[in-house]
């Protein structure tokens, strides 16, 4: 465990908590893509099935359980508790365009053709594109609440830190997982445009709004 990996996990956790708190405190999930949240919950559920098969560390298991519970809680808040505030009209990204190709790819390109491994690969590929419905929603409405942009920032930061973590592990441990690295790169690139807006607008105290 290096500092980049730990910082990555922490910012991932911060992102998840920010989103949960935002929805809970404002009693509203306006501007949040329920579809992205369902995708993230599916990512965690399919990836962390190994909770039942192997034990890596207390840290590893507890983080997995926290991620899964928080993501399912978020889906529950969006689709049940605060459903009335959910902006379904603007959450129109066609998720089948992500899930079907990602599903197909995970059957074709994986480390081992076994159910657990295919599900793990599926979750890695799916995570890399799971934010697209959320970004699509923001591009459609042309704006995002500042707290939502903080959520996206920490989610992107987590991916960026994981990339540094992989460079570190490659040099110091000879660790190299091409599937995770390529998917992680794709995922980080998707945040670049957003990062630019975050730095140029949100950090200067302006609301994130896109030119019409």
């Amino acid at each position: 465990m290096n500092i980049f990996r730990l910082a990555g996990d922490v910012s991932h956790l911060v992102a998840i908590i920010i989103l949960l708190l935002k929805i809970w405190k404002t009693r509203s999930c306006a501007g949040i893509s329920g579809k992205s949240q369902i995708l993230f919950a599916s990512v965690f559920v399919t990836r962390y099935l190994d909770l039942f098969t192997i034990f890596i560390s207390l840290y590893n298991s507890s983080m997995k359980i926290i991620y899964i519970s928080c993501s399912i809680a978020t889906v529950y808040l969006v689709y049940f508790k605060f459903k009335a505030t959910y902006d379904g009209n603007h959450d129109t990204f066609r998720v089948e365009f992500l899930v079907v190709p990602v599903g197909g790819l995970s059957f074709l390109v994986n480390h081992d053709f076994s159910p657990m491994e295919i599900l793990w690969t599926f979750s890695i590929y799916l995570e890399s594109v799971a934010i697209l419905p959320q970004l699509f929603m923001i591009s459609k409405t042309g704006e995002a609440e500042t707290i939502t942009t903080h959520y996206l920032f920490f989610l992107g930061l987590y991916r960026g830190l994981y990339l540094i973590n992989w460079i570190w592990r490659y040099y110091f441990e000879g660790f190299f997982d091409l599937i995770a690295i390529v998917a992680g790169l794709v995922q980080t690139v998707l945040y670049c445009d957003f990062f630019y807006l975050y730095v140029t607008k949100v950090l200067k105290g302006k609301k994130l709004s896109l030119p019409a």
Binding site: H12, I54, H111, E173, G174, F175, F176, D177, L178, A180
Partner: peptide
């Protein structure tokens, strides 16, 4: 020899 996979990451 590079280790291909080692699922200790989250």
């Amino acid at each position: 020899q590079l280790i291909v996979k080692q699922k200790d990451e989250l």
